[in-house]
Amino acid sequence: MPNIQIQTPFTPEDARRLRSGDSCLISGVIYTARDAAHKRLCELLEKGEPLPIDLKDSIIYFVGPTPAKPGQAIGSAGPTTSYRMDAYSPLLIAQGLTGMIGKGKRNEEVVSAMREHGAVYFGAIGGCGALLSKCIKKAEVVAYEDLGAEAIRRLEVEDFPAIVVIDSAGGNLYQTGRAAYLAETRESGMNAI
């Protein structure tokens, strides 16, 4: 499958061009955030206070890396399960967030915000933190250092591999990929166990 090159900033127009199942290579700047950082960002939004990062045309990677060894930009850094961010993502998408990288299912509220504002949910391969870390060239903490692995980091990435799981029209690879496999195996009779 040919790879689609994505360069940040990632606009809603860029997001709307992608379709679930597309294999992408992301380069540029992305931010890390997971449960605790999302909670803090949304608390700031509720209070009407400014955020420590600019979300417009940005991509958030749901990851809490291991500490970097001397000489490394970052330790192992694969995706964490995304549904834990479902309570927060719609608010951030409304602020201009256009891409999320994680793994696992998202709820209807997230998909609806993605449709409305133009955003994409990418999947990176879960459990491949050592491999994925090689695409991260630079990492620096930009907010919430007290959260340790959960701090917000600014990452410079090169050709970071991600598959579009849910696109801005609601197409969902978890449904279509599985259905296509099952249809194929039924046709060839391989499913007869």
Partner: peptide
């Protein structure tokens, strides 16, 4: 699916060679 399993194998090989955690969790 085969391609993903290949990446998973590549990942644990890197972890082995570089004494790096297989997964960040």
């Amino acid at each position: 699916a085969k391609e993903i399993l290949e990446r998973i194998i590549e990942n644990y090989q890197i972890a082995d060679e570089q004494d790096q955690p297989v997964c960040q969790d």
